[in-house]
Every structure is written in C-alpha cells, then in structure tokens.
Amino acid sequence: MGCVPSKGRRQFPGYEDPVFLAAQTTFSVSEVEALFELFKSIGSSVVDEGIINKEEFVLALFKNRKKENLFASRIFDLFDVKHKGVLDFGDFVRALHIFHPSAPLEDKIVFSFKLYDLDNTGFIERQEVKLMLLALLGESEMKLADETIEAILDKTFLEADTNQDGKIDLSEWHSFVLKNPSLLRIMTLPYLRDITTAFPSFVFYSEVDEAAA
C-alpha cells in the first residue's frame, strides 16, 4: 500500500513498528495501523501530544471529561504497564490485544483478576469488592441497602472463595469465571475483529506493503 507518505508517525512518543506489534499480538499489521487511527483520535481529544492521558481515556469512555470513575481508572492503570501515567501506542495495542475475540482465554482471566485486585495483593478481597459495588451504585444511581450489599457479598464469596479464607485467589477466580462465563463478557470486544473497517483511513497512511500486512 503506502499510498501517501507517512506524516511523521515515528514522531509519536513510544511509537512502535506495526510489523513488530503485530508479531507480538493477535492483530494483523493492517489492524495495528487501524488501531493507530483510533489511538490518534483518543490521544488528541484533550492535548495533542501523541499519547493518551487518563483524562482522554475517561473522556473516550464517558464523553464527559469531568467524570471520575474507579473502573475506567483501574483499566487505564492496567494498560499503563510501564507506570508512566500515560499510554503510548505500544501500551495501547498490547493491552487491547487481550480484548480481541481470538485472544487466549487465560489472558482474559488473568487481566480480569488484576482488574478487581485493586490493591495488587494477589487476592480479590471482600473490602475491594464492596468498594467496587459502591462505586457501581454511585455511577448508576441504583440504590441498595447495606444489608443487601452484604448479602450479595456473602453469596458471592460463598461461591467464589472455595477455601473460605475470606479472599479470592487466582485459582479460585479461574474456576469461578469458568462457571460464570458472562463475567468475561467485558473482556471481549467483537469490534476489534472489524477494526480495519471502522478506521479505513489507515490505508492512506500505511507504511507497509500489502504482502506484509
């Protein structure tokens, strides 16, 4: 392809070669290039500096830059594997790869476990789950009495915490989500299969030959 010369993609901080990123992920080279169009779009919504900051990430999710959200913030932090406080293109592609319909189930299970292990102790604790339930209630304006929340937590930990030590480890989480596959629905984005159709403009900026894509 290469219809139009690239307009300085390599000037983007953390820009990585699409061929290199495709080799590391489920994405084809064309899909990585289409993701770059999405990346640019999100990363230029507040400050156009070639990276995605947390504000831009939350804005993309909520269309509201003032909103703070525990879950969006947690996902951002997990995408930010190098703990730089911003996402570069490589971070973005490698993290989204886990959400691809063809990504390994095991990767989705581990990512979802980390998502809910808010304090990174290697366990999902009851207090963390309660905090997330309260955050959900705040976000949705759904109202639940404290005793209802405790009943939900009791039921959840009875099912998930099989050794009944008050916390859910990765092995327990693994068994729990296999019995409740709907919990992994958030970990798969069917849209990623059609990313080149969603961002066809990648063709105009492609730097690779069709044969390589």
Binding site: F62, F71, S73, Y116, I152, L189
Partner: peptide, 25 residues
C-alpha cells in the same frame, strides 16, 4: 433482582468497564 446476581455480575455492568465506548470517538 440485584440480590440474585453475584457481585461481579453487577460490577461488570459499569460503564467504566465497557471498552466498546472507546470506539465511538
């Protein structure tokens, strides 16, 4: 009936966990 659901089913309803929205930009 929220009480019939487990906590994670409820939590996964959060808009902040729905990355589909990223593609709407």
């Amino acid at each position: 009936q929220p009480v019939a659901m487990n906590a994670f089913e409820l939590i996964s309803m959060s808009k902040g966990l729905n990355l589909e929205n990223l593609f709407g930009t």
